[in-house]
Design a protein around this nucleic acid. Structure first.
Lengths: 224, 224
DNA sequence: AAGAACTATGACGAATTTGTGAATTTATCT
DNA sequence: AGATAAATTCACAAATTCGTCATAGTTCTT
C-alpha cells in the first residue's frame, strides 16, 4: 500500500519540522501547511489525506476555524495540538469533531502513538455504520438510508454501494469491482456492473451523482 | 423511559467531568465516585445503576479491586478505563468479567459507542419480558401476546421469534439463525427456517410483516 | 467533423431464492 | 402403544434478482 498522507498545519516551521521528522521516520508522507488558509486549500486539492495534525494557535485563521470548515465536507481524522491541557479547549474540540488531542510539549512516542491509534480507529474497516454525505449504510441491518429515509436495495446493489463507499475517492476498475463484489470465479460480462450502477443511481436520487463514471476505467464514489 | 444511570469512577475530577459531559449530552444520568471505596458504597446503595465506567489506576482501592467486589454480587456491565492499551490488563479484565475496554485518551465517539454497545448487548438478554411494537414476549412463561391477546406458539416458534426480537434491526443469515436457535451440531435443511417463519407470520397477523425477508441473505425483524 | 470507443438505459428471460401446502418423521403425553 | 402435536422435509408455485442484449447516447481520437 502507498504511504499514508498526513497534513501538518502549524505556523512555526520548527514545530512542523519536528512533527514531520517523527512521522517520516514511521513511513508516513507528510505535507506541510503554514497557516489555516493554506491548510484548507491544500486539503481540498490533495486527494487521499488520511489525517490532519492541526495547531490551534495560529494567526488569522486558527485551528478551530480550519476544523469547522473541513468538517463541513469531510470526516478526515483530526488531531489538535494544544499548548496546555485546557479542559475548555478539549470539550470544544470534541464537539467540533476532533478525534484526538496532543498537548505541547509532547514526546515523539506520544505523537506516533496517537496518530496510529486514530488511524486504526478510523480505518473504517469494521465499522457497522458508514455515514457520508447524507448516505447511511447500516451493514448490520443491510439497510441504506438517504437523509434518514430508508431505501430498499437488492443484495448485490447493497454490496456494490458498500464497496464504493468504503473505497470512496478511489478510482475502481470494472475488473477490480468484479473481483471484490462478485466472486473471483465469476466470468460474466463486466457490463453487468453498468446495469447495477444504473439502478443504484436511480434509487439514490440526487445522491446518485456521487457515483462517478471514469471514462475508460470504471467508477469512483465521491462526495464533492 | 427513565434515563439510565451510569456510575463513573475516577480519581481525577477532570476526567470525570469530561466523561460526564458527553454522557449527559446523550441523556444519561451520571453519578460520580472519586475512589474505589466510594464507588462500592454508592453502587450498593443506589438502585438501578445500569453501567459502571471504572478507571483502573486509583489510589488505595484500584479498579480491579472494585470490579472483583462488585462481581461477587452483581452482573452490572463494567467498562474499564485504561491508560494504555495493555494486553495483559485486558486479559485480566475479561477474566474478572469486564465487558469493555476504553484506553485513554479516547474520543467522545468511542466512549458513547462503547457505552451504547454494552447497554444494547446487556439489555434484553436477561430481561424476562420483552415488549416492542405491540408484541410482548414473556420468556419465563414462554408466552407471546399481541396487543395483550395471548397467542400460542410452539417451542421452536417462540425461540425463533425471541431471537429475531433480541436482534431487532439486524440482518440474520439462515446459517446464523441455525447456529443460534438450533444448535451448532444441527445439520438439517436451512429451509426449515422458512417454514417456521411462515407459521410465525401467519400466527402474528398484522405484526407478521415485522419479520422481513432479505432476499439472498435471510431475515430481519424490524418495527417501522 | 466523422468515426471509434466507451457508457447509459430499458426490456426480457433465465436462474435463483423464497413462500406455501402437504407429506413425512420425530417427539410428547396419556 | 396410540394419539396428538411439533418439527422437518419435500415439491411446486410465486417472486425477485441478475445478467445479457440491443439501442441510444456520450466522450475521445484523428
Amino acid at each position: 500500500m502507498d504511504r499514508l498522507k498526513i497534513l501538518v498545519v502549524d505556523d512555526e516551521s520548527r514545530m512542523r519540522k519536528l512533527v514531520k521528522d517523527f512521522l517520516v521516520r514511521r513511513n508516513y508522507e507528510v505535507i506541510e501547511a503554514e497557516n489555516g488558509e493554506q491548510a484548507i486549500d491544500i486539503f481540498f486539492q490533495t486527494k487521499g489525506i488520511a489525517l490532519i495534525i492541526l495547531d490551534i494557535m495560529m494567526p488569522k485563521v486558527d485551528g478551530w476555524q480550519v476544523c469547522r470548515e473541513i468538517r463541513q465536507y469531510s470526516d478526515v481524522p483530526i488531531i489538535m495540538l494544544t499548548a496546555k491541557g485546557d479542559e475548555k479547549d478539549e470539550l470544544l474540540g470534541f464537539e467540533l469533531g476532533v478525534d484526538e488531542y496532543i498537548s505541547k510539549p509532547f514526546s515523539p512516542k506520544i505523537l506516533v502513538a496517537r496518530v496510529e491509534a486514530v488511524l486504526r480507529r478510523t480505518a473504517g474497516i469494521d465499522e457497522e455504520v458508514i455515514e457520508i454525505g447524507g448516505i447511511t449504510l447500516d451493514k448490520a441491518a443491510h439497510q441504506l438510508k438517504i437523509d434518514g429515509e430508508p431505501i430498499d436495495l437488492s443484495y448485490k446493489e447493497f454490496e456494490l454501494l458498500t464497496y464504493f463507499v468504503v473505497n470512496k475517492g478511489v478510482a475502481l476498475s470494472r475488473e477490480k469491482i468484479l473481483n471484490n463484489v462478485w466472486n473471483y470465479d465469476y466470468f460474466g460480462d463486466a457490463r453487468t456492473i453498468d446495469t447495477h450502477v444504473k439502478k443504484l443511481r436511480s434509487k439514490m436520487g440526487d445522491k446518485g451523482k456521487y457515483i462517478k463514471t471514469i471514462w475508460g476505467l470504471g467508477y469512483k464514489f465521491e462526495v464533492d
